[in-house]
């Protein structure tokens, strides 16, 4: 199991500096990525999911900085501390694309509209391999075929606007897969797509995970996607990882009040018209005026004085179920009593 570890993130903190104010977008995030497993990061908008992904790829904007923490890539020839590499240095550019690849949310803005899809794929292939143009084009065609793009010989010479949304995302994945990366980071890859197309893309990603034994970091806000795709789940709220564990642990026995509330607030297909939705009261706090202690405390039903005073530490139980809450044991006990009554 240990050998499968491919990327380790420890206590990562990222700050954004804008308008002379400081937004602590990530406040100590830790997780592990393993080969052949999918880690889903879920959370609402503004919780820092995308910042995490961009920090790993060193794609953060200029006004932000990794304050502390480590991102360690466990390669075949030793560990690489990604956060220490210069952003546009040779080594980082080699890592990006060859070892870790990223798929973005909106394939239309991620592809360059003035170059053909084939040109953009060749650019990437030629940057990382010794292939000549002709061989690179052949490889692009092969990749598009693998991703299920019809008529790849013709499609490779077309521009992104001639592709439909699903096809564009396939082209993006083809490009990401060009150098057979060990880590695939997908930042809301299907949010802009229809459900039937989303299902096609997920089939493709699952297949790639099986055949290439890739580690996938999937960022999403949709609990349905989590249930479908994830092996491991991490729930984020306001820059913290509030709970993480296997998909069964999180969905079947959520322990953090936020996870519990989140799961109760979404309608689940098949539960009919009379399911009881419990909205989470209030709204996510302004990142510039954060609550002093636990970030969820103002909206939490279990909050006490200690929650407002400081941020709870990570507690681990059931081998790898992590929760960041002072009262998780009490909540767990309450739930067991409720289950007992049923």
């Amino acid at each position: 199991m240990r050998d499968d570890l491919i990327l380790q993130v420890k206590d990562l903190s990222v700050n954004f500096y804008t308008n002379q104010r400081c937004n602590m977008a990530l406040r100590g995030v830790s997780f592990d990525l393993r080969k052949g497993r999918t880690l889903c990061i879920v959370g609402e908008s503004g919780c820092g999911k995308s910042v995490t992904a961009n920090a790993i790829m060193q794609l953060l904007p200029d006004l932000s900085r990794i304050e502390s923490g480590n991102i360690t890539f466990k390669g075949q020839d030793g560990d690489i501390q990604i956060e220490k590499l210069p952003k546009n240095g040779k080594q980082m550019r080699k890592l990006r694309g060859e070892v870790m690849a990223m798929i973005f949310q909106d394939p239309m803005t991620a592809l360059n509209p003035v170059f053909t899809v084939g040109f953009q794929m060749n650019e990437m292939i030629q940057a990382h391999t010794d292939l000549r143009k002709k061989a690179a084009t052949e490889k692009s065609i092969g990749l598009l075929t693998d991703m299920g793009v019809p008529l790849p010989e013709q499609r490779v010479h077309e521009y992104p606007h001639q592709f439909s949304g699903g096809m564009r995302q396939r082209a993006m994945i083809a490009m990401a897969m060009a150098c057979a990366p060990e880590i695939l980071i997908a930042d809301e890859p299907t949010t802009a797509l229809d459900v039937t197309i989303q299902a096609q893309i997920f089939e493709l990603m699952l297949e790639l995970k099986e055949t290439e034994h890739m580690a996938i970091l999937l960022i999403t806000h949709d609990m349905g996607v989590v249930a479908e795709m994830a092996d491991d789940v991490a729930v984020m709220y306001m820059g913290n990882m509030v709970e993480s564990g296997t998909v069964q642990q999180i969905l079947n026995s959520p322990s953090h009040p936020y996870t519990i509330a989140l799961l109760q607030s979404i309608p689940v297909l098949g539960h009919g018209k009379n399911q009881n939705l419990e909205p989470i009261r209030g709204m996510t706090p302004d990142p510039y005026h954060r609550p002093p202690g636990c970030q969820f405390a103002p909206r939490c039903d279990f909050a006490t004085d200690i929650c407002a005073s400081r941020l709870p530490d990570e507690s681990v139980f059931d081998t790898n179920h992590m929760v960041r809450c002072f009262h998780y044991e009490e909540i767990k006990r309450n739930k067991e009593i409720q289950h007992g009554k049923k």
């Binding site: 019809p150 299902a199 089939e203 996607v225």
Partner: peptide
Amino acid sequence: ALLSAIPIADLAQKKKRIPLQGDV
């Protein structure tokens, strides 16, 4: 096909997807 394509946030309800080919 549409119903089968929807990801459901319930592990007990996993079922077979009916994949649709192509686009609208």
